[in-house]
Design a protein around this nucleic acid. Structure first.
Length: 491
RNA sequence: GGCCGCGUGGUCAAGUGGUUAAGACGUUGCCCUCUCAAGGCGAAGUCAGGGGUUCAAUUCCCCUCGCGGCUACCA
């Protein structure tokens, strides 16, 4: 049997948790669960300027919300911790000393200003801007001089010349780079903190990561990392670079494209199952034609072989379609709970309602269940139950009330409604039936004017659902108001 | 600029040296229905462009173009 599959998700806690990060996490997680392997969650917080504890909390909360758990890492621990890079500084130091001693790395005393100047000079000559190796072979005297100036050195990796760096990527196949295209890069910043390309290698290796699944933006970083694997005599893992998620304009998804963080989708009332299902289908396709997957089905069907090379545009319409499936699957209680925050922020409820009022709200919210794709759409759908004073949605809607048959139909409807001892769906249905029978009108001539008079709109949930919720009194009041507005008298 | 990656309908995508080039979202027509949503049945729409290789290229090779990534003491 092959050795255990170990994957990791290693985000930087530097901002909202992006949808692209969620997909990377998902693919890693799916691979681990599929293969019975382990998922490690490591925090790459070496960018001390931008890293925040809140962001780390966001990431954890988002992963949990999505249902992506981890076997080792922050919070849960594990044999290869600590799992925050800033808590591993002494570990990196050991390897840095080794590289320094072996001459595979060296101190660089260049200041940021000097490096900028070098870069600019190179660009001006339209040459590739990269570090030219100024401090590669400093004499002891020069080093002393720099030290005397009080300069704090960074440490650079000595990139070998004329080497070809090749690896087989799980999604892209064989990829190779020339070492000559890579300048000596910084592995430890002058403040003693390692850079991404360096720490990631040591951590992945020490944590026995077997498969590194990450976004394509890291593809060009891989040769640098390969160099470090080799210099440290570490075994290379398998790499798999998944493509980026793009916005509608085919540019990398960013704030301009609307919601980009997992939390925003949560707040809009998308369901974790829906988002996961959608994300799985971005850049991966099952061998079947299935579109809707439970978590177990996803794990079963997932395979790195079917991960696409090309970038994928984030299509909200499809997300909506998928999420709608999951909305419809919710129980009445779940749906109401999902609706609650949106109903509260719309001002339709306070969250403290009880008894009859609560029961009424539950029924009202239930009417939206088949109609919406995500939670935030609910208030819009049920809004008509709350505003007795409304305007006609469109002129066509108002025009419906101008039909000659309307006064008669309305009179019959109001009379029957008032005469009804109790009012529920089947009673309302009976009223419509009897009007149809008496007038010999088709359903449309009976239902539609009532609908418009009641809601100001030609569309909406079934009338037999709406009327009992509104009650006789409010229904009649609305109808009379609407007729008056449209200049129709009951005759 | 250099290096690397990517390019199948509007979008997600399957697929192959010979196919009527799947399926889904969206769009659209019809059915159902008071309407909307859902559902059912249809329709339109694609191999970035140009050269090769080949009896035959969407598929293999090259070039061009487009998009993206890296080229940071960010990750």
């Amino acid at each position: 049997m092959d050795k255990e599959i170990r994957v990791r998700f290693a985000p930087s806690p530097t901002g909202p948790f992006h949808i692209g990060g969620a997909r990377s996490a998902l693919f890693n997680w799916l691979l681990a669960r599929k293969m019975g392997g382990k998922m490690v969650l490591r925090i790459e917080d070496t960018d001390v300027e931008r890293s925040t504890p809140e962001s780390e909390e966001n990431i954890k909360a988002a992963l949990k919300w999505l249902g992506l758990d981890w076997d080792e890492g922050i919070d849960v621990g594990g044999p290869y911790g600590p799992y925050r890079q800033m808590e591993r500084l002494d570990i990196y130091k050991k390897y840095t000393d080794k590289l320094l001693a072996e001459g595979k790395a060296y101190y660089c005393y260049c200041t940021p200003q000097e490096l900028d100047a070098e870069r600019e000079a190179l660009t001006a000559k339209s040459m590739m801007p990269r570090y030219m190796g100024k401090c590669r072979n400093l004499s002891p005297e020069q080093i002393e001089a720099y030290k005397a100036e009080g300069r704090k050195p960074s440490i650079r990796f000595r990139v070998p010349e004329g080497e070809k760096l090749t690896f087989v990527d799980m999604v892209r196949g064989e990829v190779s780079f020339e070492s000559d295209g890579i300048g000596d890069f910084v592995i430890v910043k002058s403040d003693g903190i390692p850079t991404y390309n360096y720490a990631v290698v040591i951590d992945d290796s020490l944590m026995h990561i077997t498969h590194v699944i990450r976004a394509e933006e890291h593809l060009s970083n891989t040769p640098r990392q390969l160099l470090i694997y080799d210099a440290l005599n570490f075994e290379r893992p398998q790499f798999g670079h998944i493509s980026l998620i793009l916005g509608k304009d085919k540019k990398k998804m960013s704030k301009r494209h609307g919601a980009t963080s997992v939390d925003q989708y949560r707040q809009m009332g998308y369901l974790p199952e829906g988002l996961v299902n959608f994300l799985a289908l971005l850049g991966w396709a099952p061998s079947s034609e299935q579109e809707i997957f439970t978590e177990e089905e996803l794990i079963k069907a997932f395979s790195m072989e079917h991960v696409a090379k090309n970038p994928a545009v984030f299509d909200v319409d499809k997300l909506n379609w998928i999420n709608q499936h999951y909305m419809r699957k919710l129980t009445a209680e779940e749906f109401f709970a999902a609706a609650k925050p949106h109903m509260i922020s719309a001002g339709y409820m306070t969250g403290t309602e009880q008894g009859e009022k609560l029961a009424w709200l539950e029924k009202v919210v239930a009417t939206a269940k088949e109609q919406v794709s995500f939670g935030a759409e609910i208030p819009r759908v049920v809004g008509m139950y709350f505003a007795d004073d409304f305007d006609f949605e469109t002129t066509e809607a108002e025009a419906v009330l101008k039909e000659d048959s309307v006064p008669m139909v309305m009179k019959m409807f109001i009379d029957e409604l008032q005469a009804a001892p109790i009012i529920d769906g089947s009673v309302v249905k009976g009223i419509f039936k009897s009007i149809q029978k008496a007038t010999k009108f088709g359903g449309k001539l009976v239902y539609m004017p009532v609908r418009v008079a009641l809601t100001g709109n030609q569309h909406g949930p079934e009338l037999v659902e709406i009327i009992p919720l509104l009650g006789v009194e409010r229904s009649i009041k609305r109808i009379k108001n609407s007729l008056e507005k449209a200049g129709i008298s009951l005759a």
